[in-house]
C-alpha cells in the first residue's frame, strides 16, 4: 500500500509541482527586477486556461506537429518518474539508467525540432536548427558530468548513484573537487537544456534571440499548454537531478514514512533554493551571443572531463 502511494507520488510529483517552480523562478526574477510579479501559481492558471481554449492549426501541419506535444509531455512524465526525487530505494529498473534519461529527453527534443520544421514558417526552422545545435553540444557536458558521479558510485543507475553519493564518505580532496567541477558542468548543461539564460530567453519573442519559443510559435490551445507544461517538467527534472545527484543528503533510503516525509520536504526546499539561484543567475548575467554558446558548452564538457580524470 505504502509502496503504491510512493509510486504514485513519484509519478505525479514532477508534473504536479513543475508549474509551481516555474512560478517561483518568475516571481524571484520579477522581484529582482523590482516588479511585483504574478503569483507563483500563475503557471497553473495559464495551463488551465490554454487547455480550454480553441485551437488554430496550420493547414501545412502534419501528424508530427499534432502529436509532438503529447510525445513531449509523456516523455517528461516518464523521465520525471525515473529519476530520484525523494526516495532511492525505488528501484526503477526500466528507465532509470542515466543514458536512457538523456536519450529519452533527446527523443523529445527530436520531435520538438521536427514540429518546428513542420509548419514551414521561417521561425520554426531556425528555432529547430538552433535547438538541435545546442542540444547536440550540451549532451556531452550533461553525460560526462553525471558520469563523474556514476564512476564514483560504480553504477549508472540514477537511484543507485543518489544513494551511493549520499552514503559516500569522501576520502580525498580530489573527489570533492571533481564533484564540484562536475556540478559546475552540470549547471551549465542544465541552463542550456532548459532554455535559460545565458543560452536562451524563456520569455522572449524576438527572433534574434529565441530558440525554444521559435519552435513552438505555431502552437495554441491545449497543445501549447502541453508543451509549456512539458518544459516546466523538464526544468524540474533537471533541478531534481542536480539536487538529488550532486547534493543527495537527506534523501530517503527506505520507505519509512517519516523518512519520506522529511525527504519530501527537504526536496522541496532544495528545489526552491535551486530555483532562486537560477532566477538570481538569470537576472545577473546577460544572454551570450549565439556563436558564443559552444564555448560555454565546451567548458562544461571539459570541466567534466577534468573531473573524471580526478575521480579515477
Amino acid at each position: 500500500m505504502k509502496l503504491i502511494i510512493i509510486c504514485i507520488i513519484q509519478l505525479i510529483l514532477v508534473p504536479a509541482l513543475s508549474p509551481f517552480f516555474v512560478g517561483i523562478v518568475r516571481k524571484v526574477k520579477a522581484r529582482l527586477q523590482n516588479r511585483r510579479g504574478a503569483s507563483v501559481f500563475q503557471p497553473y492558471s495559464d495551463i488551465w486556461k490554454l487547455l480550454h481554449k480553441d485551437e488554430v492549426i496550420s493547414e501545412d501541419a502534419s501528424w508530427i506537429f499534432r502529436y509532438t506535444p503529447y510525445i513531449l509531455f509523456s516523455i517528461t512524465i516518464i523521465v520525471g518518474a525515473s529519476i530520484p526525487l525523494f526516495v532511492t530505494t525505488f528501484t526503477n529498473y526500466f528507465t532509470s539508467d542515466f543514458l536512457v534519461v538523456v536519450y529519452l529527453l533527446a527523443l523529445g527534443t527530436f520531435f520538438l525540432a521536427l514540429a518546428g520544421l513542420d509548419v514551414g514558417n521561417a521561425f520554426g526552422g531556425f528555432g529547430s536548427s538552433r535547438e538541435m545545435t545546442v542540444s547536440a553540444l550540451t549532451e556531452a557536458g550533461l553525460v560526462f558530468s553525471i558520469l563523474v558521479l556514476a564512476l564514483t558510485a560504480h553504477t549508472t543507475n540514477l537511484f543507485s548513484i543518489a544513494s551511493h553519493i549520499e552514503s559516500l564518505t569522501l576520502h580525498s580532496h580530489a573527489q570533492y573537487v571533481s564533484i564540484c567541477l562536475a556540478f559546475i558542468g552540470f549547471i551549465i548543461a542544465l541552463l542550456a537544456e532548459t532554455g535559460r539564460f545565458p543560452f536562451d530567453n524563456p520569455s522572449t519573442h524576438l527572433e534574434l534571440t529565441m530558440i525554444h519559443e521559435a519552435m513552438i510559435l505555431e502552437y495554441s490551445g491545449k497543445r501549447l499548454a502541453l508543451i509549456e507544461w512539458a518544459s516546466a517538467n523538464k526544468l524540474l527534472i533537471f533541478i531534481s537531478l542536480g539536487s538529488n545527484l550532486f547534493l543527495p543528503w537527506g534523501i530517503a533510503n527506505s520507505i519509512d514514512s517519516a523518512d519520506i516525509i522529511f525527504s519530501l520536504v527537504l526536496f522541496l526546499l532544495k528545489v526552491t533554493c535551486f530555483c532562486v539561484a537560477i532566477a538570481a543567475l538569470e537576472s545577473s548575467i546577460a544572454k551570450v551571443r549565439y556563436f558564443r554558446i559552444p564555448d560555454l558548452l565546451l567548458t562544461s564538457f571539459i570541466l567534466s572531463v577534468i573531473a573524471i580524470i580526478l575521480v579515477i
Binding site: V56, S58, I77, N121, E218, G221, K222
Partner: peptide, 30 residues
C-alpha cells in the same frame, strides 16, 4: 511499454478533457 502507455494515456486524457473544443485550420503565421 512506458512510452506507448504514457503517450496513449495522455492522448486519451487530453481528448476526454477537450473533446468539445474546436480546431480551426489556418494558414501558417506569415
Amino acid at each position: 511499454i512506458s512510452l506507448v502507455l504514457f503517450i496513449t494515456g495522455i492522448v486519451i486524457i487530453i481528448y476526454l478533457l477537450t473533446r468539445n473544443q474546436k480546431i480551426r485550420k489556418g494558414i501558417t503565421w506569415d
